[in-house]
């Protein structure tokens, strides 16, 4: 456990020194400015509009920053031959991977905290707390996905594309499924096969449309179960991606 924590600490230190907090702060300022602009032109519900737009922008910004930061960090370490150096020490591969994962997840949670603090401008503390917990879980999931793809694909562009693609698919998959099963959907074999394929894919994707919703800041979390489900959703997928990443990393010849 000790090597995992040590590595995680260094990953956090790297995040701090590579300007991640400043980037996060810039994201917060940009989101606040955009939300303020939108609320100025809204003729009704200006405060709610500000909260909804601001929260959505903060969420998107945090996810994007985390994905890019993790992929860039893995690519830099691979180019510097840092993996080979670290694994020359008495650190097991799983400990190395888990340390990286824990460090990136902690950095993501820090970024989520910065974003959640900004939402206190518009929302009640209890609602902002629920949003923060959910965003921390969501950004940790994105960090896990980015680490997985950056490790497996070895190409930064491909890893970023895969991470953001997975995220967007997970965000929109409920809508895609609903459209596919709409009343005008064809009854042909091809259409049926597409629906089955979508059902199968749905089993392998998290439902991120149900996580970190801006409406929580406006109307509160509907039920405690909603937040609980969001956390289980993210937790399960983090475990799955981490296991897949550990499996791949353990098999790789370095």
């Amino acid at each position: 456990m000790r090597p995992v924590l040590t590595l995680a600490r260094y990953v956090l230190l790297e995040a701090l020194r590579s300007g991640l907090p400043w980037l996060g702060l810039a994201c917060v300022v940009a989101a606040l400015a955009a939300a303020a602009f939108v609320s100025q032109v809204a003729i009704a519900e200006s405060r709610e509009t500000q909260a909804a737009v601001g929260a959505a922008l903060l969420r998107a910004g945090a996810v994007l920053i985390v994905a890019l930061h993790v992929v860039a960090s893995v690519a830099r370490e691979a180019n510097d031959k840092g993996i080979e150096l670290l694994l020359a020490f008495p650190i097991s591969r799983p400990a190395y991977y888990l340390g990286k994962l824990l460090g990136h997840a902690a950095a993501a949670a820090g970024l989520a905290t910065l974003c959640a603090l900004a939402t206190l401008l518009w929302a009640k503390p209890a609602d902002a707390l629920a949003w923060w917990i959910s965003l921390a879980a969501e950004t940790a999931l994105v960090a896990t996905a980015a680490l997985f793809f950056a490790t497996v694909l070895s190409q930064a562009t491909a890893a970023i594309f895969a991470t953001l693609g997975l995220y967007l698919l997970a965000r929109s998959f409920a809508a895609i499924q609903a459209i596919a099963s709409g009343p005008l959907a064809e009854e042909s074999m091809a259409a049926q096969a597409t629906r089955w394929a979508l059902e199968a894919l749905g089993l392998l994707l998290p439902r991120l449309d149900a996580v970190t919703r801006a409406e929580w800041l406006l109307y509160g979390v509907a039920t405690a179960g909603e937040l609980w489900r969001a956390l289980v959703e993210s937790g399960l997928y983090i475990a799955l991606l981490a296991a897949a990443g550990l499996f791949d990393f353990s098999r790789r010849n370095l």
């Binding site: 409920a174 809508a175 499924q177 609903a178 099963s181 979508l198 059902e199 749905g202 089993l203 392998l204 994707l205 998290p206 439902r207 289980v232 959703e233 399960l236 997928y237 475990a239 799955l240 981490a242 296991a243 897949a244 550990l246 499996f247």
Partner: peptide, 20 residues
């Protein structure tokens, strides 16, 4: 861990069902 988390993910999503 891989088998358990995969089974957990599939079971969770299957229990949720798809949205219409």
């Amino acid at each position: 861990l891989l088998a358990t988390s995969l089974a957990g993910q599939v079971a969770w999503q299957a229990a949720r069902g798809s949205a219409a």
